[in-house]
């Protein structure tokens, strides 16, 4: 009887394993070309320190001078014996770099490799219900042998069969990120996630870095209003008010409901001594229905424009602004 129960359990275990590996069946192989970023540096990890080591690898590859040891104090959590994804994504911002999470498919990893950027991935070498998390950096892929090349743990050049890579990556939630310099955009065409990352970057970036980032977005996605707003705000912070006004106006042309662009344009017009033009921006607009931060800013801008318009006419140069 006991034997039969054991047999049943075994069958179930095998069935379960097959089922799980079926989920990550290899799928169409992703690239015909062989790529390896041999110049990518290597930081052998200390115990539990794969997060700082992997982060140092991608940061140094992107031209930053740092080391795994230097990053430990900003990434390692002793009680968790590891580093968290949220902090991995937040770290590059402190180094004038943009962190971009990638779409959860292997094609995005290959595309980034082919664009010359190593890809930081989260692997799970345990089981879904007994996870063992590990960060590694993908630096190459060879379609002939079907292997990924990794900087991982203590190994400078670890070769991993793509099937094993995919299982570990799948169990790790298919999480991957790259580090972009200001002025670079991602290899794959995903405007939304880039602009989101860029908007987070803007809060800590210098105006020049922010400008380079959004200018690249404008070149890549000329139909995206948010890209123009970002570049406009960088121009504004750099003191180029006419250029800022033109970018905001372009964003409004693309999307007339873009309340952030409208507010920023109106404020820029006030600063350019064109308060009447600024007031005209708000005509017939229901500010109270906007989300709170936009509503508050718009009302403040409107009041400023009203106050300025009461005491002065628009300057002569205002004709040249939208």
């Amino acid at each position: 009887m006991a034997k039969r129960a054991a047999l049943a359990t075994a069958c179930f275990a095998i069935f379960f394993c097959v089922l799980l590996s079926g989920c990550v069946a290899r799928g169409p192989m992703i690239s015909a070309r062989s790529t390896e970023l041999e110049q990518t540096p290597f930081f052998p990890q200390k115990r539990f320190q794969c997060g700082p080591a992997a982060m140092a690898t991608v940061l140094v590859a992107s031209g930053i001078s740092t080391s795994a040891e230097a990053l430990e104090s900003s990434l390692y959590i002793p009680a968790r014996r590891g580093s968290l994804q949220v902090e991995m994504l937040a770290t590059p911002r402190g180094f004038s770099r943009l962190a971009l999470p990638l779409p959860r498919n292997p094609a995005s990893i290959i595309a980034e490799l082919e664009a010359g950027r190593p890809v930081l991935v989260l692997h799970n070498y345990g089981l879904p219900f007994w996870p063992r998390w590990h960060y590694a950096v993908v630096v190459g892929y060879d379609p002939v042998d079907d292997v990924f090349v990794l900087r991982s743990g203590g190994k400078r050049r670890q070769l991993m069969r793509s099937r094993r890579f995919m299982i570990a990556w799948h169990y790790g939630g298919r999480w991957a990120m790259v580090v972009l310099r200001p002025g670079e955009t991602a290899a794959l065409d995903d405007a939304q996630s880039f602009l989101e990352a860029a908007a987070h970057f803007e809060k800590v970036a210098s105006p020049a870095d922010s400008h380079a980032t959004f200018a690249a977005a404008v070149r890549r996605w000329p139909g995206e209003p948010v890209a123009y707003v970002g570049r406009g705000t960088a121009e504004y912070r750099l003191g180029n008010l006419p250029a800022a006004a033109h970018d905001y106006a372009r964003a409004l042309q693309l999307d007339s409901a873009q309340a952030g662009a409208r507010n920023n344009l109106a404020q820029t017009l006030v600063d350019l001594r064109c308060p009447h033009r600024a007031l005209a921006m708000f005509e017939g607009r229901d500010l109270d229905s906007l989300p709170a931060p936009l509503r508050d800013a718009s009302i403040e801008t409107l009041r400023g424009a009203q106050a300025a318009a009461a005491v002065t006419d628009d300057a002569a140069h205002c004709e040249s602004f939208p």
Binding site: L195, E196, A198, A199, H200, E202, K203, F214, V226, V229, G230, T233, Y236, Q258, G260, A261, N263, N264, Q267, T268, V270, D271, P291, P293, L294, A297, S298, E300, T301, G304
Partner: peptide, 10 residues
């Protein structure tokens, strides 16, 4: 001034 962050648009 009252320039909003680009993140407010997102």
């Amino acid at each position: 001034a009252a320039i909003v962050d680009t993140s407010a648009l997102i």
